[in-house]
């Protein structure tokens, strides 16, 4: 067809179509270059952030900084209790989030048909997912701090974070379960298993890999959450709480909240030093959560399903 066109067409037309083809190829090449540069921006930014935070914070972070107590007004304070509070609230939040969200995800994925209840739950989860964390923080303030008279507590903070992270955890569950081949369900049912037995013994073990990855990534988000905690778990370590307090009923200032307070109302002269150190620790924690998520997910899948994914 191209040959025929070339034979019949006058020379001028042929030249025109050739130069037009060249022009289109040039546009394509430029677009390709731009898309590559756009993607490189992401990696470039990440490298810049990591390099900058390490440059500023590496000299600050040492054992004394990580484990030391914060000081009220003199230099040299550490962030030990803040790290403890971050993990404390993280574990408490996961203890609420995982059972509720995994159950709801199992229900929607394995039980619910296209009924009305399913639609309402799905829509509620989507709505819940877009509630800004500061708004969730104010809700926590109204309910846990004021209506329940709990004041600022680790428990109130953890419950607020639970509300914030339920939708993501439910989505992770749904996706993990959806990834399990239908043959697993059929085989279990054919062996006489009830639906629940099928879920617990056949489906959950084979979904545990992606589920774990999801849990750890969400844990990373919980660890860094700030806005929802300031008015629920409080922004002071000293308020009714000793440095390493096991009680859920006391104020618990996390590391991310401490970084915010450092800027806002620090009395210590070395606030910038502490800020740089805290920012680096938060970054390293995020990197660790990401690595653990990948490795643990892969290991667990292999152990429980006998195959590598």
């Amino acid at each position: 067809m191209a040959d025929a066109a070339m034979v019949n067409a006058p020379d001028v037309k042929q030249d025109l179509s050739r130069s037009r083809a060249r022009g289109r190829r040039l546009v394509d090449a430029v677009a390709t270059l731009l898309l590559w540069s756009a993607a490189s921006i992401v990696v470039g930014l990440l490298l810049l952030f990591v390099a900058y935070l390490f440059y500023k914070g590496a000299s600050v972070v040492d054992w004394h900084f990580l484990t030391g107590n914060p000081t009220a007004a003199q230099a040299g304070g550490g962030i030990g209790p803040f790290i403890y509070n971050s993990f404390y609230i993280l574990l408490l939040t996961l203890a609420f989030t995982i059972p509720i969200a995994v159950s709801a995800g199992m229900y929607l994925q394995e039980y619910a048909s296209r009924g009305r209840f399913r639609q309402i739950v799905q829509f509620s989860a989507e709505s819940l997912a877009t509630v800004p964390s500061i708004v969730m923080g104010l809700f926590g303030l109204l309910v846990f701090v004021e209506a329940f008279h709990w004041h600022f507590t680790a428990l109130g903070g953890a419950l607020t974070l639970t509300l914030l992270n339920l939708p993501a955890m439910m989505r992770v569950t749904q996706e993990s379960l959806a990834g399990v081949p239908a043959t697993y369900r059929e085989a279990s049912m054919a062996l006489g298993g009830t639906k629940w037995q099928t879920i617990v013994r056949a489906i959950l073990p084979s979904a545990i890999g992606p589920l774990t990855t999801g849990v750890v990534l969400i844990a990373g988000r919980i660890f860094g959450e700030t806005a929802a905690l300031i008015f629920t778990a409080g922004a002071s370590v000293s308020y009714g709480r000793s440095a390493y307090d096991p009680s859920v009923w006391h104020t618990a200032e996390t590391l991310s909240v401490a970084l915010y307070q450092t800027h806002r109302e620090a009395l210590v002269p070395d606030a910038d030093r502490i800020g740089n150190g805290a920012a680096l620790v938060l970054l390293v924690m995020v990197l660790l959560f990401n690595i653990v998520a990948r490795v643990a997910g892969r290991r667990l899948s292999r152990r429980l399903t006998g195959k590598s994914t």
């Binding site: 990440l46 990534l217 990373g220 660890f223 860094g224 991310s256 970084l259 938060l282 995020v286 990197l287």
Partner: peptide, 12 residues
């Protein structure tokens, strides 16, 4: 890299 960018807390 994108996953890490998602994970970086807003305070950072």
């Amino acid at each position: 890299a994108i996953e890490v960018l998602v994970g970086i807390p807003s305070i950072v």
